[in-house]
């Protein structure tokens, strides 16, 4: 393939950053997108230049580490696919591909395409759990949970926390992520006792981190590699409303 890559390079949070153009050789269609970047980096290292920093780990679409905006679309725009699972056969032989980091105030750039997503962790620390210590749990089958509820909780719980929803949203809103986390717990009977506190505290942390609000554009749902539904945002809006009404 004869690709032209426009890659965002940025030394650190203070550097304004710029695009750099590459024309890598030896790219074949069977490569994954990240393997293509590996090849670019090998070339750079051999030429004595600094390779492009990008985040990745599992390379099988589950850890949520990879975080590239490819041609304006987080993860590249293939349905239900993370960047690490995207393959070069989805591109044309002569394509120009623009690669950028997640862009959001709450996700400052660390270097090149790597951003700091610790805001997500801080949101979870405010309530994304059931307060049970190890040891006191009753037998697992003591608490029957209807399959429908359990399946819906699982739909929410599948979120890999990659942040593509934030990256895609014109407001850099984290509502899809936060609502998936809130809904996973709030749907299940185990999470009910803390449901009100949870949603209030997590939403507050979300606001404090500097994410935008939801305009219901649906960009987040469209790019979510786990196809998390906007319905969870509705549900969180409802949970939050009920929680503040109760005082």
């Amino acid at each position: 393939m004869n690709l032209t890559l426009k890659v965002w390079r940025q030394k650190g949070a203070a550097d304004p950053g710029h695009f750099e153009t590459f024309q890598p050789k030896g790219i074949v269609e069977d490569m994954s997108f990240l393997e293509m970047l590996d090849v670019v980096n090998e070339e750079l290292i051999e030429a004595g230049k600094e390779p492009i920093a990008f985040d990745h780990d599992c390379r099988e679409g589950i850890c949520g580490t990879c975080s590239l905006v490819i041609n304006g679309k987080p993860h590249g725009g293939q349905k239900a696919t993370t960047a690490c699972q995207l393959h070069m056969r989805k591109f044309g032989k002569w394509d120009t591909i623009t690669i950028e980091p997640w862009r959001a105030k709450a996700f400052p750039v660390v270097k090149d395409l790597v951003v700091d997503r610790s805001a997500f962790d801080r949101i979870i620390q405010k309530g994304g759990f059931v307060s049970v210590g190890t040891g006191g749990a009753p037998d697992a089958n003591c608490l029957p949970i209807s399959k429908e509820v359990s399946d819906e909780a699982m739909d929410a719980a599948q979120c890999i926390g990659c942040g593509a929803c934030v990256a895609a949203c014109k407001n850099a809103s984290a509502m899809l992520f936060v609502s998936a986390k809130v809904s996973h717990m709030n749907l299940l009977p185990q999470g009910k006792p803390e449901a009100d506190r949870r949603v209030k505290n997590m939403v507050r942390q979300m606001d404090e981190e500097g994410f935008g609000a939801c305009t219901v554009t649906g960009s987040c749902e469209a790019v979510c590699p786990k196809e998390i539904s906007l319905n969870f945002i509705t549900k969180m809006n409802r949970d939050y409303g009920c929680a503040i009404l109760k005082g």
């Binding site: 049970v132 749990a137 608490l143 029957p144 299940l188 185990q190």
Partner: peptide, 20 residues
């Protein structure tokens, strides 16, 4: 005990229609 603990934490293990 692991299963008990995980269920208490809210791990959504697969269930049957009866809820177990």
């Amino acid at each position: 005990s692991i299963i008990d603990q995980c269920v208490a934490q809210g791990v959504p293990f697969a269930r049957e229609y009866g809820g177990l």
